[in-house]
Structure formats: C-alpha cells, structure tokens
Design a protein around this nucleic acid. Structure first.
Length: 585
RNA sequence: GCGCCCGUAGCUCAGCUGGAUAGAGCGUCGGCCUUCUAAGCCGAAUGUCGCAGGUUCGAAUCCUGCCGGGCGCGCCA
C-alpha cells in the first residue's frame, strides 16, 4: 500500500457513505477513480478524478459532486486543504507531517520500504534467456537475461513467489549440427581431414576449445566410429559443456536462475503425446494442407498434408503443424508440452521473455496454452527488441553463425556488470536499444548508472562529513529516526521527500505493468532531484546539510539524505546493481 | 498479402494503462569551483505528439482508415 492507494480507498468509502445517506445515488461506478500525483506542484499533493467519473455516470455537474466530496475529504486528519480545479479535479494538499512521517517510515523500514503485498499468495513462473545451447551468449541475450532477472526481482519485491526458469532446447536439429560441428573440430584437431564440414556448421572458437578438451578426454576413440555411435554421446556432451558456458555468462551478468528444464526430457517423458491426445479429445487435431503465405514467393512450396492444431479456434491466424514431414514433432509441439508441464507444476501465471524475432509465435502458444488448460493460465509474453551494439558509432555484428558476435563475457569485461545491467533497462523492452561501448566506459552523464551511483556516493559522503564534524555517532539510522523532521520545511527538501515517498507506488506500478525500466527512470529522477538540492548550497549557504553549530538541524537533514540513500540502494538492488559508497579513491 | 511492434524537440527516448499548460538527456547558447565530491548544478531556445476521421467533460494514450520504419509468416529453434 502507498499514500495514493490509501486515499483511493478512502475516497471510495466516502462515496459509499454518501450513497448510503442518499447524498449520492447508488450504483455509481467507482472503478475508474484514480488518485495520482499531479504533474504540477501547484495542484497539490494528490489529484483525484472521482467527481468527473461520477458525473459521467450520474449525468450531473462534476463541480457540484466535487463540492459534496470535498466536504468529506477535508475531514481526513492528513488533509490540509482540498481545491476543486479545472473540469472537476479534486486537488488535495496533505499536511507536512504526512511527508515527514513518510520519511521516518523509510528510516525505520530500510530497504524493505517499497515492498508490496499485491502479489501475496500468488506464484509466477518467469522464463527467460532460454537460448539454444549451441554457444556462449551474445549481447542480444544479455538484454533478455537482465530484463527477466529484474522483472523477477520486481515481482518478488511485490510479494509474488517467483520461479526463475531456463528452458534448454536440447532436442532439435540444431543440437545435431552442434555435435557434428564438434566432431569436425575433433577430427581437425587430430589431423583427420576426411570428415566433411556439416551443413550449418558452427564456426565459433569455443568449439575448437571444446574439441581439444574432448581429445584429452576420449583421445581417438570416436575417430573410426559411425555417426550413429558418436552423435548421441557428443550431443549430450556438447550440450552439457555449452550450458556450462552459458551459466558462466549468466553468472558474470549476475543472473541466477533456479530451474532449468530440458526439452529432451520433456519429449522423452511422453508429454508431447499427452498434448496430442488432449487436443485430439477436444476435436482440435486434424490432418490438413496449409496454404502458402500470400505475398511471399513460394519457393520450394509443396502442398503436403500435416497434423494440424486448430489454433484458429483460439484467435490464431492459421492452424499450426505439430509434426514435420518426417513424422517427428515440431518445436511448437514440444513447446506446448513444456507449457503443459509448467501448468502441471502448479503455475497459472506465466511470463515468457522472448526476442522480438519470436513475436509471430505468441498467438499460437497462447492458443495452445488456453486449449490445454481450459483458459486457466495467464501467459504474458514480453518481447525484447534487439540490441544494436555500437563501437564508435559502428555497429558490431552479432551473428552466431558468422562467429563474430560480441559475447556477454567480453561485454562485461569491457564495461562492467553494473553498467551492462543498468543500460539494458534504459529503454522500454519493446524499443530498440543502442548500446555504445565507448559511452558506457566514459563514466559521465552519458552513462546513467554513474549518475545514480554518484548521488548515492554523495549521500554517503555527507554522512561521513557529519560524523567528522560532530565527532560522534548521532547519525546512525536509529538516532535519525528520532530526529525532529519538522525542521525539513524548505520547498526543495519537501519535494525530495515526496519523490522518495513515491517509491512504493513506482514499484507497484512497474510490477503490475511488468516494466522494470521504470525503476531505472525513477532512480534517474531521484538522483537528479538530489544533485539539484546538493548544489543549492552554491547560491545559499543555508542549504548546507551539515550545520556545525546545530546538531538537531543536521540530524533532520541527514535523515533526508539517508532516506534518499536507502531508496537508491533499494532500487539498485532490484536492478541487481551494487551501490557504491565512494566514486573516488 | 497477413499478423505483431514502433512513429513525441535537431538527435536518442520517457510519458505514471483517458487527465489539467506534453517532459528528460545529448547537442546549441549563456552562467556557477577560496567546494558537505564540478563525474555536478542553474538559466535560455526548441513541438501540426506520422496523417485523417471517430469515441467524450477531456486523447500522445482507446477505435477505424491511410503513410512511413522494424520483425515474423509450413517440414528452424
């Protein structure tokens, strides 16, 4: 809960009260009523649209409704005054003590200030990264990894029980190619040139390394064996080793997932057959022929009958094949099995984080999931647009096939984990992101993470100065909680407190919208507001935080500084970024 | 051809799920270091919110149709 929600609830009870004594007609719809911080500070602390919403429903003048409401609202102990403005806004100004109390709450609660209960009792499964285990991760994966990780933290902070999951696509044709590529490198290492380079060969250096490892492990054992002998062994060996690489990359990024689900084991468990049977029983499976997509040149297009899922019955554009022409399952079929598996593990809230190139896949999976779970599952798919990696303005290629992509470990090595994580959240997930390695190293205002870190470091610095000046321990959180916060009465000080007090609302809204970037933007605003207050001292000495002849005032101001520090630190924690106490040695 | 995403200041982007006079950063111009850290701050200039309709007290936000850009479209995952 936060102030805005509290007042929203309060105003709704006011309306119900007024209805019960016939001051307002019953059955007025109150769902769309909102209480928000107004854009303009001159409009008070809270803006409520209740009168206008009711006016629409009741076909009455909003101003007169507002008058009736305001008479009741003014009696709330926290309210200083209520203005009726514009087309019928209720602009509520709160007493200063409300804001002082908010700040005290921060000092008492520490980093748990901002925690919320909106997800209490709900579990949610967030699946992210899920890159094919055919090589190390590149920067495109990093975005999804950070996004999924921070979204998970955000959901956890708002009370959800979160499962962070990775789906290992270890069962498809690409894994065979991986094994053949490894085998080719293995032959190469042993000086045998007669094994032909496989189609779709993975050229990356990492397979050279892995082949060398394999030679040490098994020596020439596989050289004169047939593919049917080595393929299964090398496949699982390669997948295991690739997952080690990937987990290392994720760990470098500070991303820890708790659950890894193997596609292969899902398929081997017979879950795909279960899916087919379930859909069949509901008459959703038939054998049919798909039309070629219009507007595309149908090269190599052959009409062929396929086993199709009637996904159009659930809003998809065309029905989707579950079997390939060689009678093996399509990826879609095993993916449905995987989602059924999630359901059987008890999840009804699912979030999938995908690259934007998988956008065309959403409808069919949602169709499949609602068919298999009778609509009991809510599946949200969050698409992350690709990252354009720039280096002095030039775009670096990220093609896994070409083997020239920039890996996560290279990126983390050059700019640092915290910078990577923060910058990945400086854009909404569905907007393209330019990541300039040079700027990210610059450590300037161009680099938002430093701006926020700087505010945090300054807040730490001022506490150190205060301790020096007073030569005692009056500035720990316990002492500050008891300080006289009413001494914080300046316009800028109150503005900063109000921004700090906004934190719980930012957390809740970001969680509900599943938009972790809002945290990064908020932290930027908060840092800006603090830097601004910090610099006020240049025009006016009275803005000094540390007032050497006034312990009480210093404690009050340090309370504000520590409140800010707590919220920044708490926000950075959600982002998985380490707050620093000093930027200069 | 169909589906999804995007179009907001010169550039890169926010815009709190329909609110009041649309905001930041960069860039441009002009100020602030005998300093609680100038990796910072302050001020100025800059807009047909792609276009045209519609919904209503009220639209950058919702609906429809165009224009422009990106992604995807059976036997890849």
């Amino acid at each position: 809960m936060n102030i805005y929600n509290d007042f929203n609830a309060f105003i709704k009870t006011v309306i119900e009260e007024l209805q019960s004594i016939d001051k307002l007609p019953p059955d007025s719809l109150i769902d769309n009523i909102s209480v928000d911080p107004p854009r303009q500070t001159t409009h008070g602390d809270l803006a409520c649209n209740a009168a206008m919403v009711l006016a629409k429903k009741l076909k009455q003048d909003p101003i007169s409704i507002a008058k009736v409401l305001s008479e009741r609202i003014i009696s709330h102990p926290d309210v200083e005054k209520v203005d009726i403005a514009g087309p019928g806004f209720l602009n509520i100004t709160l007493k200063r003590t409300v804001w002082h109390d908010q700040l005290r709450k921060v000092l008492i609660a520490g980093e748990s200030f901002g925690d919320s209960e909106i997800g209490r009792g709900k579990s949610i499964n967030v699946e992210y990264v899920s890159a094919n285990p055919t090589g190390p991760l590149h920067v495109g994966h990093a975005r999804g990894a950070v996004f999924g990780d921070v979204l998970s933290s955000l959901l956890a902070k708002t009370g959800y029980s979160v499962t962070r999951e990775y789906y290992i696509n270890d069962a498809g044709a690409q894994i065979d190619i991986l094994a053949r590529s490894l085998y080719w490198r293995y032959c190469e290492k042993l000086g045998q040139e007669n094994y032909e380079k496989p189609d779709g060969f993975y050229p990356g250096e990492y397979l050279v390394d892995l082949a060398a490892k394999l030679v040490i492990k098994d020596q020439k054992h596989w050289l004169d064996k047939s593919e049917s002998e080595w393929l299964p062994k090398l496949s699982s060996y390669a997948v295991d080793e690739m997952m080690k690489l990937i987990r290392q990359d994720l760990s470098d990024l500070g991303v820890e997932q708790s659950t890894f689900i193997s596609e292969k084991s899902i398929v081997e468990s017979g879950m795909v057959e279960t899916v087919l049977n379930m859909l069949s029983e509901n008459g959703l499976i038939y054998t049919g022929v798909l039309d070629p997509p219009k507007g595309m040149k149908p090269e190599n297009w052959e009409e062929r009958p396929q086993t199709l899922f009637r996904s159009t019955a659930f809003g998809d554009d065309i029905d989707r094949p579950l079997k390939k022409s060689d009678d093996s399952w399509t990826y879609f079929a095993s993916d449905l099995a995987y989602h059924l598996d999630k359901y059987k593990r008890g999840f009804t809230n699912l979030v999938n984080v995908w690259g934007a190139d998988h956008g065309g896949y959403i409808k069919r999976v949602q169709a499949g999931v609602s068919a298999l779970t009778e609509g009991n599952v809510k599946l949200d798919v969050k698409l992350c647009q690709l990252v354009r990696l720039l280096e002095n303005g030039e775009a670096a290629k990220m093609s896994k096939r070409a083997g020239t992509y920039v890996t996560i470990s290279e990126l983390v090595d050059s700019v640092g984990r915290d910078v990577v994580r923060f910058i990945m959240l400086t854009r909404k997930n569905d907007a393209q992101l330019d990541f300039d390695i040079i700027k990210a190293q610059e450590q300037s205002r161009d680099n938002p993470v430093f701006y926020v870190q700087y505010a945090h470091a300054r807040s730490c610095s001022v506490v150190r100065m205060a301790k020096d000046a007073f030569n005692d321990q009056s500035f720990d959180y316990k002492s500050l909680q008891k300080s006289d916060l009413s001494l914080l009465s300046g316009f800028d000080e109150l503005a900063l407190i109000k921004l700090i007090a906004l934190w719980p609302r930012v957390v809740e809204m970001a969680s509900e919208a599943q938009e972790p970037h809002r945290i990064a933007f908020y932290l930027n605003d908060l840092a800006s507001s603090f830097h601004s207050l910090w610099s006020k001292v240049r025009e006016d000495e009275s803005f000094r935080f540390v007032v050497t002849d006034d312990l009480e005032l210093t404690q009050a101001r340090l309370s504000l500084v520590c409140g800010l520090r707590t919220v920044i630190s708490s926000g950075l924690k959600v982002l998985g970024v380490e707050p620093v106490e000093e930027l200069r040695g």
